[in-house]
Design a protein around this nucleic acid. Structure first.
Lengths: 132, 132
DNA sequence: GCAGACCTGCCAGTATACTGTAAGGTTTGC
DNA sequence: GCAAACCTTACAGTATACTGGCAGGTCTGC
């Protein structure tokens, strides 16, 4: 399989696949006589693994760790769980922050009549620090 | 006031204040004979405005728009509200995505016993696409 | 008059994960 | 045999918002 077919199969742009190789996230692919990268089923599985982990918000660094654990038959599931929990905490932190931002914004928007008149509590609050 | 005092008063690093000036977000400050930037009360208010808008997640580009509206006595509050609502939508999108990620992760973590045994549903799911 | 804090400009680097582009070689199908 | 599609490397650029570091000038207090 050429990189185009793999791109198709995994949903990852060819460029991204090469990038993953360049940073050592995946092993360098075999090459054809014309120097094209050649892939097999296992490579597809690996790239799909990466794609799914990325969708769950793991950084490339963590994806690398997850892959190491994946390939380590001696791994403790606790190690994997630890990574997942750490990712979960980061998500929770972001959720907390976003929720708080949303709450304040919602509050401000409700106060603003939003018509042609110039007076606007949103600007007032930004200007005078009375944000709730 | 020198930039250090302003930094103190606003909570923004001096470097950041200079940066804001360099990108035209704030007017160039007056200068002392020794070429130091000089600030007054109004500058503090402006920088605080920026800092609060940033805390609400507005991009610098939007902060610039908000400031233009702030200074425009002819503004319609609807314009301000529109900016706030657009920011709110972005926050909601991120919240939706994060919540979904969290749900999947939570589900995976619950399945994983997290001990010394190597078998781990988290890796299994990443490897075989059965993510819920 | 001098140490130490504070300031200056400027360029480059940080973080993260790609993405674009140019110039050129390879393969495939008709 | 030739065009179109596909592939190659390498370098630079994108996005966002700063942050670091350097060499050197300025201000303050004793």
């Amino acid at each position: 399989m050429n990189i185009g077919a793999v791109s198709e199969a995994t949903g990852l742009p060819a460029k991204t696949i090469r990038y993953y190789e360049s940073i050592g996230l995946v092993e360098p692919a075999e090459r054809s006589t014309g120097n094209y990268r050649l892939y097999g089923e296992r490579d597809i599985l690996t790239l799909r693994f990466i794609e799914r982990a990325r969708r769950l918000g793991f950084s490339l660094k963590e994806v690398k760790e997850l892959m190491a654990l994946w390939h380590d038959r001696q791994r403790a599931s606790a190690d994997v769980r630890r990574l997942a929990e750490s990712q979960m905490r980061r998500i929770d932190e972001r959720l907390t922050k976003l929720t708080e931002m949303r709450r304040t914004l919602q509050h401000l928007i409700e106060q603003c009549h939003g018509d042609r008149r110039p007076d606007c509590p949103i600007l007032d609050e930004l200007a005078h620090e009375r944000i709730e």
